[in-house]
Amino acid sequence: MKLYHKVFKNRPDLSIYLENQEPLVSYCDELLGRLSSSQNMEELCEAKKSILKDFRDIYLFDLRNAEFPELIGHFKSEKEKRRFVGKKILLQDMVRYLGSIYKKYHTLIYENSSELPAIEMKKLAIDYNEIYQKAMDDYISAITYGRKHAITASFVLPSLIEQGLSTNLQNRLLFKSICSLPDDRNLSRPLDTEEQEYISAFLHNTRNFQFNASESYVMGKMYELFVREGVLKASAEMEMILTGVGHERQKKLTRTLNALLETNFARKEIRTEYLELMKDLFVKLNIRNSIMHGVGETFDYLNLGIVSIMFQLIWDIATCEIFKDEV
């Protein structure tokens, strides 16, 4: 059953449990079947989107209809209290639906092939590929031996997601802007030598080309070019996506995961289902800080279900499934 009246209750330690979980478990098995029965990548992509859409319907229904135990503590207003309950229900639904489904799905993949998806990340001063492999080893150990936590994965996956999303959005903005440049005859002025070299490198030889300057300088040159030629309007958001730091009225906008998710460009490029999921996870629930600083007293933020959701996210970012179109 997709939608039903849930009854959440408190344990003595004030953690939350779902009293009537049987319909949930049954429906999760149905959703898992959509993934496991997919015959090709197109069907799998559609199955993933349908699950995220169903999750959104379920959460919005539970927000209005679920029974939740009376809260203990002081709230400044009824609105603050409702917002707090909404976050608790979102967390419960996210782990019980998406976390459970993805964990079982990943377990099936590993049992059938003895491996989980490998991705190649941008090599910087920090080797993100090594970090990813550490997280993967931890996760495989957890699902193989039935552990409740994959602690290394919990701590590093938010940073890997940020790095992967940042690189993809930057590349998409860069490529689309280059392709929108006027032809040589209609440029406001001829491209200088650096601009020609950078554009050629981005279009034809990105992996092997060694830039002779920092990212902020190279991308700054590109940003100035796009604004000069009318491809982009000057904005802190676009400058931040390309260079790492945007400037507007003596204020700086630094490229972070939350900042990226709030941009108009992200809304334009990312499928609604994925954008809502990432905002739920990293903005509403503030999972990154909850994991890093241990701010949750009544929920285990190292829960393996959250790790499963983050792994599925990083794989779908790497394969560009989260985006509306190809570039």
Rank of each mutant, 00 (worst) to 15 (best):
P117I: 03
K53I: 15
D29C: 11
Y145Q: 06
E130A: 03
F84I: 12
S154H: 02
K123W: 05
T107N: 04
E46M: 00
L98I: 08
F155W: 00
T152M: 10
A66H: 05
V156K: 03
L71D: 00
V156H: 01
T107W: 08
E70F: 06
Y110M: 06
L44D: 03
F155G: 09
V156C: 01
E130L: 05
I51R: 02
L60A: 10
L116E: 01
Y139Q: 00
T107C: 08
Y110C: 06
R83E: 11
S114R: 15
I140A: 01
E30T: 13
T152L: 09
I119P: 03
I119L: 07
D57W: 01
M136P: 09
S141N: 14
I131L: 03
L60C: 10
F61S: 05
S113V: 09
I58Q: 09
L32K: 04
L90F: 12
T144H: 03
D29Q: 09
L108A: 08
A150H: 05
I89G: 00
E43Y: 11
R83L: 11
D127Q: 01
K103I: 12
K87Q: 04
M94A: 08
K76D: 15
E42I: 15
P69E: 03
E70Y: 04
Q133Y: 04
E42L: 15
K48D: 04
E70W: 00
M121S: 00
A47N: 06
K48Q: 10
L32M: 06
L35D: 01
I58Y: 06
K87R: 10
V156R: 01
L60D: 05
Y110W: 04
K48I: 13
A125F: 10
D62E: 05
Y139N: 05
A125E: 04
S113P: 03
G99D: 01
M121E: 05
R96Y: 03
Q92S: 15
Y132G: 05
F61R: 08
R64G: 00
S26D: 13
Y102T: 06
Y128D: 09
Y105P: 04
A150P: 13
T152P: 08
E46I: 09
I126Y: 06
I131C: 06
C45S: 14
G146F: 07
A153Q: 02
I89R: 00
C45I: 12
T144V: 03
I126V: 12
Y97S: 11
F61T: 07
D138A: 02
A142T: 01
K49W: 03
R147M: 14
K49N: 09
D138I: 03
N65K: 12
